[in-house]
Design a protein around this nucleic acid. Structure first.
Length: 276
DNA sequence: ATGGCCATTAGCAATGGA
């Protein structure tokens, strides 16, 4: 089972690159962020023609998330609705289209696009922290069902200093502040684990390179796109790869895909054997 | 060096992204 996350920074601009990548990698599930398109204009036919199931939640110009799957997408939940009560707070956080979840082959996949936050003294930063807190509440409700869980997407946070190219300059700032990191760690609740770090502990692995500053040419990036797995899934993870070369494409997204391979479904013998 | 570039918009200048 191959599950991928990719902030494409406009699905319509990136469509040819997305289709090429799908044909090459053939992931079971691709989770997109920053589709930047309202639902009625989502280019769904092209994915359906290739045999993919799709679910999406978008808006004009900003944000937008989508699931593109070779498997049945069931129990699709858009925004925070479905886990949290339908009240004023929930509808406020649902205005920006940043979250979609579904069951795929028994795995609860939660695709998120965490707010950027602009800078530490901005209103947008306050919103980012509130959004993370709301996501924590969402996950607390969701976890009661005890589904194997994959939380993935663009978190706009480098979890640790080894996840950004110049910690001396950038640690403590936006995407690397103590508050953002604590809130991220807090919502994972010791139940969800960053699968990339199971396979690679070193620095120098990035998923995003700023369009400015010739950061790609200098390989000065950040690892702000992550895949978090619950225990049964993490035990069965086989690899986690960052598809770095796509950043070298003509007209690339500033993010590249991150892909996890999981042995799934697992059979009872394997589970008994592991627990034994 | 806190700016660079890129995508979008009732659209060519302003805004947001990270």
């Amino acid at each position: 089972m191959l599950i991928a996350t990719w902030n494409v920074n406009s699905i319509r601009t990136r469509l040819p690159q997305i289709m090429n990548w799908l044909k090459e990698v053939k992931p079971d599930l691709l989770c997109l962020q920053e589709t930047k398109v309202e639902d009625k204009l989502f280019p769904k036919e092209i994915f359906e023609k290739e045999g993919y199931q799709i679910s999406f939640s978008g808006q004009k110009a900003y944000n937008g998330v989508a699931l593109i799957s070779q498997h049945l997408l069931s129990d699709v939940r858009v925004g925070f609705t479905g886990e949290l009560p339908e009240n004023a707070e929930t509808s406020l956080f649902n205005e920006q289209k940043r979250l979609i979840s579904a069951l795929v082959d028994g795995i609860r996949v939660i695709n998120v696009y965490v707010p950027n936050g602009s800078n530490l003294s901005s209103e947008k930063y306050k919103y980012k922290i509130q959004w993370l807190h709301f996501l924590k509440k969402y996950l607390q409700e969701q976890s009661k069902r005890e589904e194997p869980t994959c939380l993935l997407g663009d978190f706009n946070i480098a979890p640790e200093d080894r996840d950004l190219h110049n910690p001396k300059r950038s640690s403590g700032g936006i995407m690397a502040s103590k508050k953002e990191r604590e809130n991220l760690k807090d919502l994972l609740d010791d139940k969800l684990e960053d699968v990339f770090r199971v396979f690679e502990q070193g620095e120098g692995h990035w998923s995003w390179w700023d369009y400015r500053t010739a950061s790609w040419e200098r390989d000065q990036g950040w690892r702000i796109d992550q895949i978090y797995l619950s225990d049964q899934l993490i035990r069965n993870a086989k690899s986690c790869k960052i598809h770095k070369k796509l950043r070298g494409n003509i007209q690339p997204s500033d993010h590249v895909p991150v892909v996890v391979e999981i042995k799934w479904p697992i059979d009872d013998f394997d589970e008994d054997f592991l627990s034994f």
